[in-house]
Design a binder for these strands. Sequence first.
DNA 1: CTAGGAGCTCGAGTGGACTCGAAGGCAAGC
DNA 2: GCTTGCCTTCGAGTCCACTCGAGCTCCTAG
Lengths: 166, 166
Amino acid sequence: MTTTTDDLLSIGELSAETGLSAHTLRFYEQENLFLNEVSRDSVGRRVYRRADVLWLHLLTRLRDSGMPLADIARYADLVRAGAGNERQRLDLLREHREKMQAEMARLTASMEAVAQKITLYESALAEGKPEQPWQDDQGDCMVVPPPERSGRQQPPRYTGARQQHG
Amino acid sequence: MTTTTDDLLSIGELSAETGLSAHTLRFYEQENLFLNEVSRDSVGRRVYRRADVLWLHLLTRLRDSGMPLADIARYADLVRAGAGNERQRLDLLREHREKMQAEMARLTASMEAVAQKITLYESALAEGKPEQPWQDDQGDCMVVPPPERSGRQQPPRYTGARQQHG
DNA sequence: CTAGGAGCTCGAGTGGACTCGAAGGCAAGC
DNA sequence: GCTTGCCTTCGAGTCCACTCGAGCTCCTAG
């Protein structure tokens, strides 16, 4: 019945509140991503607290902005260790922010190149030129080549809209 | 010797020019991502043309902006089909651009939430408050909860700096 | 003649973050 | 009693874009 006592939550309730599937919540626990041991009721079912919801909000934000679970786990470790390491936490967050800014810049650059290509197509189509200057098999309308080497990087994937639990 | 005839390239040369590993280039070919069959020399080695370099620039841009290889393959199909489907190509690119814009918005939102958290930490540290208002285990300084459900989405990964062929 | 390097094919492995399914426990409602 | 529904554990599968290795051929330099 997923008892709705004010501040204790079943996994189903937490799932509903966070949008994370029950499977995912168990998985996160197993990966040590919670700030405290998840307690159990008399028959072994997980019992969560309000604070967990808040933490999962932060966690989700970090994930959504591209932080790997491993890094989030390290952050959680720091918090679990208690007061005194605030500077380290801050460093971790700052580092992440920088990576994200770089990532955004990369994305923006590629998007702009693509946008330029779109513009070329648009104007060519508008002027009714059916196939002259922008034949892709000549590649000649791709103006901006990608940045030099510096190691392959993995792009985001908007794999989007994966079904959540259901 | 990877003969440097003006406009014909060995796989090694193409690799050098594009920053994609030879392995990756073979993989792309197998996935039908080239605009034309890659021809072979007398002993079966791949021979590329200048136009392939240009196309790979576009391909790389599309990848880097998050387009899945499957979609790129569809685009390549259109180009291969020759003139007459320009509108479809354009649609495909536009659709991609929209997805990317959405992705950027998502990223930006999460980044801002994290940035806010950083600010909170910073000011708390600056004022020398050692542990009062921003205890993570209370979750209470995470102001902006993530957006409502609407299906889980996969974030980018800045897995960055994968070694290229070497 | 030998060594080295580039290329070939095929098939398997990797990593991250889930995602799913099987096999079972327990409580409430019909 | 039986069904329904939520929960448990554990292990395996999925997806994507590579990435790697083995075992081979071929050419050139020394």
